[in-house]
Amino acid sequence: MVWRQALIIGALVLGAVIAEVTVLSRLGLPGATPDLVVVTIVAIALAMGPTQGAVAGFLGGVLIDLAPPGDTLLGVNAIVYIAIGYITGSVVDPRDRTVPIMMGIVGLAAGAAVLATSGIDTMLGSDRVSWEDVPGLVLSSALYAVIMAPVVILLVAWLVRRATPEVSVT
């Protein structure tokens, strides 16, 4: 049963990573690239629980750094996404999972992800981050995440229910 969960988490995260670098980042939208990976991680955490959320976060972080043309420090995204997966999975009470609340959570998570990765990169001595751009990236990333949230969350929840009937968080 654990394997089945691992498989579906892996497939969802891998799909999100590939779609993000081949499609979303090429749309040329203003500001940040729509962070489908974060939205998927949050969706998994909400549908399956905090531990599964953390695993999804780790996988997503490592894959987005490894997938070409990734050129960032491997592991930074993973740490941030683990925290996001775990926290969103454990903080949200299953009873008040209404769509607006979930959209808000996804938006917060996407904004926090940009802020956290930029902060960690800077602390580790990278001079790539231009902080005057960060507020715009945080806001745009949060906005795109909110837009993608309902579809992705419902889709992931449906897939998880179909594939692993024994997981019943909701």
Partner: peptide, 16 residues
């Protein structure tokens, strides 16, 4: 042909 672009929030301008 360009097949992938790095996310903007990574502050790295790389393409595949």
């Amino acid at each position: 042909e360009v097949i992938a672009v790095g996310p903007a929030q990574d502050f790295s301008w790389t393409i595949t």
